[in-house]
């Protein structure tokens, strides 16, 4: 499998990348980790006219916590996994990054690419929905901050303009009493998800769920937020009945397709089951358990 020819340019900085993309007449494509894009190019299903390589752009690979957690778009999955701040305070991100593809792919793949590629089977979208993250995009007109709820438009489609670049992901600081978990079901390591569920909860002093947010992988053309499930959880104690009701609601909000990874009705059940388990794990983490 051999990709078709393309022009290639190394971006010196973000401004350079934006300029290169703008000059490509809509045929340009950002090359970050390339772990989704290059296989598509080898099938010749993607034939971009210009690849703008942003891997040498400085300042996109940092992880900082300064009020909120800021993750550069070029941070590799393996580095996200190994980061001390992330390991200590954002176990849901560790859950997520560790189930993406396989360890070798994670050495190249970037968190920005995982989001910008907008494959409904990718794992970060659901987690970012649950974390109420926002993404920072820069284009010819400057920088904008996009709430994650507004970021995904459709399969492989985000609100990013062809000459806009995703530069950073911002995640609100984990609140006191907060905890989260991401669970994914896959046939084998490296396969696309059958389904995945990210759950974040904030527990109050009385042991009730003060806030909850749930993102679902492979639930339709994009990852979705299970808002009804969130509503059910809010203000309730995390008993079996409440969790079961929330999980059923999350499945009800999902619209997976039948494919090689299972019939749609099966996936709905998996979403329900994973939602229950993810909520339980999130609650356990929020209340000091592992």
């Amino acid at each position: 499998m051999i990709p078709a020819s393309f022009e290639y340019a190394v971006a010196r900085d973000v401004a350079d990348a934006i300029q290169l993309l703008g000059s490509s007449g809509g045929e340009g494509k950002v090359l970050a980790g390339g772990q989704s894009l290059i296989p598509l190019m080898k099938f010749r299903l993607a034939q971009p006219g210009l690849l703008v390589d942003i891997n040498r752009v400085k300042g996109l690979s940092d992880i900082r916590e300064n009020g909120e957690l800021r993750i550069g778009a070029l941070v590799r999955e393996a580095d996200l996994d190994m980061n001390a701040i992330v390991r200590e305070r954002y176990p849901i991100l560790v859950d997520t990054t560790r189930v993406i593809a396989d360890p070798l792919v994670r050495n190249m793949a970037t968190i920005g690419g995982n989001l910008a590629h907008a494959d409904p089977a990718n794992d970060h979208p659901a987690t970012m929905l649950a974390l109420r993250a926002s993404v920072v995009a820069r284009g010819p007109k400057g920088e904008r901050v996009i709430p994650i709820d507004e970021f995904f438009v459709d399969t492989f489609t985000t609100v990013l303009a062809p000459d806009e670049i995703l530069t950073e992901i911002r995640i609100p600081k984990r609140p006191a009493g907060g905890g989260g978990a991401y669970l994914k079901l896959e046939r084998k390591v490296g396969d696309f998800a059958i389904a995945g569920v990210a759950a974040m909860v904030v527990m109050d002093e009385k042991g009730r769920i003060a806030a909850a947010s749930i993102g679902v992988t492979n639930a339709g053309p994009t990852a979705i937020r299970a808002r009804k499930a969130e509503d059910i959880l809010r203000g309730q104690s995390p008993d079996d009945k409440t969790i079961a009701a929330a999980a059923a609601a999350a499945a009800g909000e999902s619209k997976p397709w039948s494919d090689l990874r299972g019939p749609a009705e099966y996936k709905l059940d998996v979403i329900r089951v994973l939602t229950q388990r993810a909520i339980r794990k999130a609650v356990a983490r929020a209340t000091g358990g592992k």
Binding site: L31, G34, Q35, I38, P39, D53, N55, D102, L104, M108
Partner: peptide, 21 residues
């Protein structure tokens, strides 16, 4: 992973990296 090499010390699948990179 048959094509795995180390790129700047990291194990990567060299069929999914362009030489220019």
């Amino acid at each position: 992973g048959a094509c795995t090499v180390l790129l700047n010390g990291r194990a990567v699948k060299s069929c999914t990296v362009f030489a220019v990179q």
